[in-house]
Write a protein that binds this DNA or RNA. Sequence first.
DNA 1: AGCTGTGAATATGTTCACAGCG
DNA 2: CGCTGTGAACATATTCACAGCT
Lengths: 227, 227
Amino acid sequence: MTSPTRRVSGSTVRRLSLYLRVLETLTQEGAGTVSSGVLAERMGTTAAQVRKDLSHFGSFGKRGLGYATEPLRQRLEEILGVDRSWPVILVGAGRIGSALFEHAPFRDRGFNIVAVLDRDAAKVGKRWGEVEIQDVKTLPQVVARHDARVAILAIPRSDAQAVAEAMEAAGIRGILNFAPVPLRLGPAVQVNEVNLALEMEALSFALRNQKTGSDAGTSGEERGSRP
Amino acid sequence: MTSPTRRVSGSTVRRLSLYLRVLETLTQEGAGTVSSGVLAERMGTTAAQVRKDLSHFGSFGKRGLGYATEPLRQRLEEILGVDRSWPVILVGAGRIGSALFEHAPFRDRGFNIVAVLDRDAAKVGKRWGEVEIQDVKTLPQVVARHDARVAILAIPRSDAQAVAEAMEAAGIRGILNFAPVPLRLGPAVQVNEVNLALEMEALSFALRNQKTGSDAGTSGEERGSRP
DNA sequence: AGCTGTGAATATGTTCACAGCG
DNA sequence: CGCTGTGAACATATTCACAGCT
């Protein structure tokens, strides 16, 4: 239903999200049309990169003119799958889980946390707004009830692999993992690791190796980025 | 003081953090020595990759034997700059800021949040454990007082660029940015973007494009991992 | 004239494969 | 003999440069 999509790199996908954000701003500003150059400038990349990225999904620009802002925005939403609402299961009702539960950009993008699970009996039964925290043992039922495909894992590393496997078995196909341990799952599950300490270490590496010596440092930028 | 470091890719640096974590486990398990093959297996990469990554920083393996676990661990800590303690300034005392403040892996790695700032007068003056929330206007003084180089930005997108520029002016050289907008700063500042909605979008992209069609999907894996 | 879409050129990152040391 | 360290082969991603539409 979506596209004649060829295989596309992870960095391209991440840039698409950023284009989308820029396009939202541009729509608000009332720009009816936008060139690859402008898009690039607002994002800190190059015009060629923008065109190449978009060309993976078809040709929606007009030569001599640029891209129609609103249609491109819609197309990107479609490509990224954010033109719909996704029910999301959150496992882990600690500090990070709580912050994510409240995280406005998730809801804005259609990622609705419809259930919160934890293994701590002291937390089970408590309410966070509309949802009541449930025991992690009920994961299969919860996933089935909401027909969820996406989950967030925000628990300590010790349980992470086991819970991830339970998620896979329950039918989850995409996991955003905040536990500081890489998950080893089958290829049917897409795992995105968010490792905060690692990001900090990448920073300290850069600092350490930029004041020392003359030319050391990172070549690929950002991170969160990034392969 | 650290190394004959050549320019090293962001993905390599991120893998170093993961090696370090595996080595900690191995040290606990009492393994005195470890081969690139074992290290690779525990991390989901290849032996050649491990050797290539490490070779950027010298040759600390013994042929026929492998790497001495503990010395390698120490060396990696040194390379990554986590053999010392870093004072970190946190700007943004909201949900995410609070979660990061409590985030154990940060302290474990020597990233100490020594000051918390916010622009909300209702929050200023409150105490989080040892530290008292201060007005974001005092940023220059706070940075100077702690001689900080690293900061975390966890505020809404509207203020992010302005505060980031203030950080740069105050002498901050590494920023972990949670605001969903890419910061445009000079090359002297290393910015690592952590964009949570974007990570979710990368997930929904993968799901959308794996059930549809036959062969679409992401080629570069994970995220975090970068370009 | 302006700007897209894309093949070709380049740069960067990963894997292979093997010589050489312990 | 095993395993590292590394150049050479390969794969992937980015940039260049230009033909072609509007």
